[in-house]
Amino acid sequence: MSSKKSNKTSLSQTDTIVTNALLVLALIASSFIIMIAVFITAQGILPLISNNRGLGSVNLWHFLTDTVWLRGDYFVSTVYGAGFLIVNTLYIALLTVLLSFPVGVLTALFIARIAPRPIAAAMRTIIELLASVPSIVFGLVGVGLFLPLIYNLARSLGFNSAGGYSVLGTVFVLALMSIPTITAVAEVSIRQVDESLAQAALALGATPTQTNFKIVLLAAKSGIFSGAILAVGRSLGEATAVALVSGTARSGPSFGLFQTTATITSTLLQGLKETVGIDYDIRFTLGILLMIVILLTNAALNFVKRKVGNQDA
């Protein structure tokens, strides 16, 4: 009897030990985001506050507003400017979502409400698969397929394009990458719309198309918007595919569709040749900038989502 009791206490001790051990693991797992924030901020803020081994510090205001990436020589000058990168990044994300959002949502509508069941199931699988295609593959297809097309298109329209490396190419690649994300999320939220809503609309004499567009899409608005926010986040943070097709411009901003361009991520990825010095440290400053741009954009879009959602709810 007594042995059994002692056994039981030792078992509950095991529970305590295991719980604490698991807590430590969970704490480590959740500390990585802090690690990212702390280490990148610490290293990224250095060029702004230190004198960069005698070169002088980077002027923050100049960094945020200038239209040329670097005035002067690498590892000598500290006159960095990323203002045009911010504008380019947001401009490209905007064009991307303008292109991919309607296509993605309408595709979702087709899959969820119009397509016969076997076709819908097949398309759902295809979209799921495409959402998991790595970005480097999109970049490769962009270079091999879109750039020559854009180059020829620009030539036939009388524009100059640097081998097709352009805003348009970047937007095409990013839009293609975003469509599966937008479609997948929108499709789920369209299917979740209460069928009685659609039935009621049909009973009142609305055509199926009117029902789909005026009732179902509106009811699924919030979910559809979430998908768009996800897609915008992905476009803002995408690096390799963009770096391959953007043309990595050194100044800007580039608004013309056939102009070469550069985003925060593509600049971050380029020319990481040395592992010390100002031109290396400044990448971390760009990293901070990228995180801030993404956070602010997300916050703004979520704000819009809440506003739009409230009005009709």
């Binding site: 969970a26 704490l27 797992a29 959740s30 500390s31 990585f32 985001i33 802090i34 690690m35 990212i36 280490f39 990148i40 290293q43 986040g233 992905r234 803002l236 943070g237 995408e238 690096a239 991520t265 971050l268 990825l269 592992t275 990448r283 971390f284 990293g287 990228l290 995180m291 993404i294 997300n298």
Partner: peptide, 23 residues
């Protein structure tokens, strides 16, 4: 802790690259 781990999902991979070279 849950929020922190969920936030990781939205971090672009290039930022993970910066974490990698700095840590």
């Amino acid at each position: 802790m849950r929020t922190f781990i969920e936030t990781l999902t939205g971090v672009p991979s290039i930022i993970y690259g910066l974490l990698g070279i700095s840590v």
